[in-house]
């Protein structure tokens, strides 16, 4: 979600930080539309390993309080709560604010995803907001629909996921050296799980496209999102594979993986998000 898309829907963005060499960056925070994705992922290719951190209770208060003070309620569409400590701080902030603004309401939608699922759902929600839907209607939609946005992806170099330790089911091998690519998905709890490996990038990309066929639910009626960590050529190839399988009828949006999520998956990772029967 970049500042431009956010502005379209009237969203306020909460920026999740990453750090390199002790310096913490808040991507998009200064409405910096032109984030240098390529430069960022080049650094990672050259061996830089960014770290990511949660945001504090105080920061959450700074995000939320002006809205409450202005008499607005908040709907927070966020990435998977199962992946981070951040939401502890959020709950503490809300507790503090509830005393001060007892009449204000806070709603949240846990997209149970990171990067592209969050983006897909935030877009859908944004469209509903523009169409004048009420928050109750949106929450009701989310209750059933969040589980119908699946993402399947693979990382090019497992050192990033290994270090972040957030994927379960990864075999403890050096298979990356011989081109083995674990296929990973976000499960219904909002956690990353590896479901086996494919040998070579071509097979891994085919697996993503085939999965969209297998578990997809009326895929052409919805937008398909491809997330790429600075590998647009590969994303185009996957888009082709998908179009082949769905008779060229797909509306495909190719987006960069945001830098904070990118710190966990590493450059040249890519994934496909589509409307599905299940996660």
């Amino acid at each position: 979600m970049t500042p431009r898309t956010a502005a379209k829907y009237g969203y306020r963005l909460i920026s999740m930080p990453y750090s390199i060499d002790g310096v913490t960056y808040y991507p998009y925070k200064d409405t910096d539309e032109e984030f240098d994705f390529h430069g960022y992922y080049e650094k990672l290719r050259d061996g830089v390993l960014p770290t990511t951190s949660a945001i504090s209770e105080q920061q959450y208060i700074e995000y939320f309080e002006p809205e409450f003070a202005a008499g607005n309620d908040i709907l927070y569409v966020h990435f998977s709560a199962a992946m981070t400590m951040t939401f502890d701080a959020m709950h503490k902030a809300l507790k503090t604010l509830a005393e001060k603004y007892p009449d204000r309401k806070f709603y949240e939608i846990d997209t149970k995803g990171i990067s592209i699922i969050g983006f897909a759902i935030a877009n859908e929600v944004g469209e509903m907001v523009l169409a004048g839907k009420t928050v109750e209607e949106i929450l009701k939609w989310a209750e059933t629909e969040v589980d119908h946005y699946a993402v399947y992806f693979f990382a090019d170099n497992l050192k990033f996921f290994r270090r972040s330790g957030r994927v379960s089911g990864l075999a403890a091998t050096m298979g990356g050296l011989i081109g083995l690519r674990p296929i990973i998905f976000m499960n219904a709890e909002g956690k990353m799980v590896s479901i086996g490996t494919e040998k070579g990038r071509a097979k891994a990309m085919e697996r993503l496209a085939n999965t969209a066929v297998e578990i997809g639910d009326d895929v052409p009626s919805y937008k398909v999102y491809i997330a790429q960590a600075d590998c647009p050529d590969l994303a185009e190839q996957v888009a082709e594979l998908l179009q082949e399988r769905f008779g060229g009828k797909l509306d495909i949006d190719i987006e960069y993986v945001n830098p904070t999520a990118g710190a966990h998956c590493g450059p040249d990772s890519m994934g496909v998000c589509f409307h599905s029967k299940r996660r």
């Binding site: 075999a171 403890a172 091998t173 050096m174 298979g175 011989i178 083995l180």
Partner: peptide
């Protein structure tokens, strides 16, 4: 040898 070693599951 290289392929065999890289595929060893240390778990």
């Amino acid at each position: 040898g290289y392929v065999g070693i890289a595929s060893v599951d240390h778990g």
